[in-house]
């Protein structure tokens, strides 16, 4: 089954684990299974059902936005990465 690597700061919301094995044939299904297993992750990854603007999902070294987005197909051995883009500034 595919897996999703959890960033270190979010591991307390995923039972302390670094990697969660997920079911599904698309990125969307994998993310839904991740949230079903670890509901506390939802508020940090999603806002009104959409991925938060700073949350990027990578399949290998490819941003899924450059593939088929959340409909991107995944394989049994796919590892997905949750990568934040960080922004901010003084005012």
């Amino acid at each position: 089954m595919a897996s999703i690597r959890i960033p270190t700061p979010l591991r307390p919301y995923a039972g302390g684990t670094a990697e969660v094995v997920v079911s599904g044939t698309t990125v969307d299904e994998a993310l839904k299974d991740l949230i079903a297993q670890h509901p506390e992750l939802e508020q940090h990854l999603f806002n009104n059902g959409e991925l938060r603007s700073f949350v990027n999902i990578f399949l290998g070294e490819e941003d899924i936005r450059h593939l088929d987005g959340r409909e991107t197909a995944i394989e049994e051995d796919t590892e997905l990465l949750i990568i934040p883009s960080i922004a901010g500034g003084r005012a």
Binding site: N56, E61, D63, L81, S85, A87
Partner: peptide, 10 residues
């Protein structure tokens, strides 16, 4: 303003 891109974050 600053931004660290997703690619740099990866």
């Amino acid at each position: 303003r600053f931004r660290l891109s997703a690619e740099d974050s990866l």
